[in-house]
Write a protein that binds this DNA or RNA. Sequence first.
DNA 1: AGACATCGTTAAAACGTTTTAATTTACTGT
DNA 2: ACAGTAAATTAAAACGTTTTAACGATGTCT
Lengths: 337, 337
Amino acid sequence: MRKRPTVKDVAERAGVTIGTVSHVINGTAPISEQTMRRVRQAIKELDYVPNSAARNIRKKESNLVGMLVPKITNDFYSLMASTFMDEADKENIMVMLIGYGYSREREERVLHSLLEADVGTVIIVNSFGDDDNIRYLVKRGIRVILADRRTSIRGVSSVEYDNKQVLFEVMEHLRKKGYGSVGYLSEPLTINNLMDRFEGYRLALEKNGYEYRENHVFISDAFHQNHMENSYWYTKKMLREHRREELPEAFIASSDMIAIGAMRAIREEGYEIPGDFGIAGFDDVEISSYLQPALTTVRQDRVLMGKELWRLTKAGREGMPVEKVHLPQELIIRESC
Amino acid sequence: MRKRPTVKDVAERAGVTIGTVSHVINGTAPISEQTMRRVRQAIKELDYVPNSAARNIRKKESNLVGMLVPKITNDFYSLMASTFMDEADKENIMVMLIGYGYSREREERVLHSLLEADVGTVIIVNSFGDDDNIRYLVKRGIRVILADRRTSIRGVSSVEYDNKQVLFEVMEHLRKKGYGSVGYLSEPLTINNLMDRFEGYRLALEKNGYEYRENHVFISDAFHQNHMENSYWYTKKMLREHRREELPEAFIASSDMIAIGAMRAIREEGYEIPGDFGIAGFDDVEISSYLQPALTTVRQDRVLMGKELWRLTKAGREGMPVEKVHLPQELIIRESC
DNA sequence: AGACATCGTTAAAACGTTTTAATTTACTGT
DNA sequence: ACAGTAAATTAAAACGTTTTAACGATGTCT
């Protein structure tokens, strides 16, 4: 209710000048034992907490970093964000986490808010927009770090997974398990990671002696709010409209959510997994091992990702040069194929 | 790279004074058609974006609201937060979403950061701490809104679900399905919503002619990072250490995550759901209907919750009085019992 | 004893805004 | 032609900090 105390109030009560108070707080000048005590005491008594807006404005650097993800409700992003925030928290940096919901317009508005808030760094996770936004941020002197996506723009760091390679492992596993053909389910190929995966799929298909068949591949026409549900309907339709022999014997899905939706559809249409259809996903979200059957998937270590992102953020603030980091992926074999 | 332009730069270029620029931006004074144009032009040319820290400091009100949730990786919280943020975004309010990870110490530190950031409102979702933090915030003149939790402290709004009532429905459903006894799986009863549920369980037990049995109730000793996994081990241990007839025929779990962990354990121990054991959860997280079997659960509408929270936030900023809101719950019957 | 360095503190400017009262300019009605 | 008003603009203060240069006091070295 009462007015928030300021450094001025503290100074008054401690019988010193506001400069001194600031020095006590920040340790920017030698202070005698005695005034130290008095100031500390006053701070405690008034329950003073500094106003970071005022501080930032003067220091010309903010303690904010922005993090843009497609959806915060997706385990894949939220775990990554969560680790990142935990790390940032340790060094008293605040992160503004924002989901832009696959909306281009929203992404832009939100970026604008971040600019107003004067963030020094922006982490962009997996945005599918073109590079204009990134270029703009860089031009404004904001450090940009890309996660799970790369760019050719100079001056931005990125952390991505090695998407292409692991598909050979997945495919080989499917072949060994005896699946006679392998289809592919994916979101639209607008981000390079998804493109890489699809390319990996085609390459691995060939390498394992499978034939590429157009109608074994189902690529969604747009990003939807609910990947799971979308994939569910998509797959269901597909299963109904084709005879068994027109369908692949196994699927690789570009994310676990896609896989989960498909699994439900497959089940509902009366087929067995992994008997009638094998299926493998991407991400290894938490729920994967709790499914029935547990989902075989490619683990993308989001904890590691979060930590790397923080490392780069910190490095950036300290003036270190831009970096491109690659993270390994790992095939986790469970029951679904 | 180049210095961020300020209102001063804009003024200079437009050949007016900074006051005028501010008036143009905020519409706080009549401005001639002509200077309007010139200022707008200058803003565009310089690509000026106002610094909200400076603005907030002067206006003595910030455009920030803080939102504290236990974990952002939990679908239950993140969907709630997501809707809230969507609403806030529409009116250009930024929300600092923070997960405190069930850590008391972290909760306190984070609250402190929010104070520094000068938030006007803090939403606390489901915190299990005692009321000290809340009291403290209120004392500092910060509007506090509680979600999925209530308090006796005056001056704080809250939105909670009607937890007790719905258990009668659940229990009746289980009885009608012929389950001979009903157990209960829960996180520790430190928050009133969990207490309400448990109380509802006991009341409903009695009303339906079931006997309350100590060893049919399993209440976890602490909040764990991973509810699903925790519940999995817990249940597994339970199933192994007791003979079938010592165990209940159905379970009510205090959250879907708990239920999912238990389902896996039950499955792995060779039992069938809903045949050998029935199970029902709480929350209706997105994945619930994709499980095998699909989970019967009590839906708590998080979208509605998010919207209500925003409504109260807005009302608070506009000086409206405190409010206590109650949201209905709904039993969603699926396959697990 | 004088020059010099060190320590603790202060005064004042600066950061980028908004806001208020004051000022100028232009118009109105008599 | 004059006071009176309305419209547009400005000057300056204010917000809560940090930072810098300057200050006085005290001590040290020759």
